[in-house]
Amino acid sequence: MFDLLTRYRRQILISALILVSLLFYSSNLRRGGASTLFERAVLQMTVPIHSALDTIWQGAADIWTHYLWLVDTAEKNDQLLTQNRLLHSELMQVQEIRLANERLRKLLEFKAEVDLVTLPAQVISEDASSWFRTVVIDKGADDGVLEGMPVVVAEGVVGRTIRVAAQQSRVLLITDAASAVASLVQKNRTRGIARGVGADLTLDFALRLKDIAEGDLIVTSGTGGVFPKGLTIGHVDKVTPLEYGLFQPISIKPTVDFSRLEEVLVLLREGP
């Protein structure tokens, strides 16, 4: 028996390692979305490094913008003076619009305060691979964040928190392949599931006979248990008409620009 083990030591080792890794992966799939101690610890340990890198990068970008990139400043200054005269005349008109805008914004802010408790957060890093769509924000369990909380910006839905450490969390973007959001077409209330496909989304299970056209607004339906009702997801980008079948393939262009994600809001009260 011992000879057998010695002879096939390598094969046994390889099989054992693969088996253990598969079992571990499988057990994590069954456990669902809860963060493990390992994940929380690693995320927490990297907080100062990520924050420091973020600060260094901001500083470097600031130096570049304000000092090194000023070679053609004099030329630009002349252009800006000309522009300034033109803009000054338009400013008076804009003032009126600004005042109206402020009033509307106050109303919106009031509505937001009444309906939901939000937590502002900063995106400090992105997914380490090219295949998945997640970001890390600088708020975590210490700030009241839990797994499964919706994350939004003014333009619409960003995603939901999937891993939460004490001071930072990972957010699964709605464009990730693992993301599915219960949605509806705003104009005719057709229901569907918005699934991520990388840069865009698709609207699955939208009935073929429903009238859906390019440009239609897609919003959250509020039935998935994660996102509140009525948040903007995107616009219908392409509808492929089919002659038969139950559903119609629909492509959605998200309203949020995920390549420029910096500040986000976590909706605290909408947790599971």
Binding site: R10, L13, I14, L17, I18, S21, L22, F24, Y25, S26, S27, N28, L29, G33, T36, F38, E39, V42, L43, S125, D127, A128, S129, W131, F132, T134, V136, I162, R163, R170, L172, D176, A178
Partner: peptide, 29 residues
């Protein structure tokens, strides 16, 4: 070698899992 390299690879995979994707253990495997 198989043993040390295998453990290293799995360990780095688990570390990457914390920062990529949504399933712990996937990159490990």
């Amino acid at each position: 070698k198989y043993s040390s390299g295998g453990l290293f690879s799995y360990g780095f995979g688990l570390l990457l899992d914390v920062f990529a994707g949504s399933s712990l253990g996937m990159y490990g495997v």
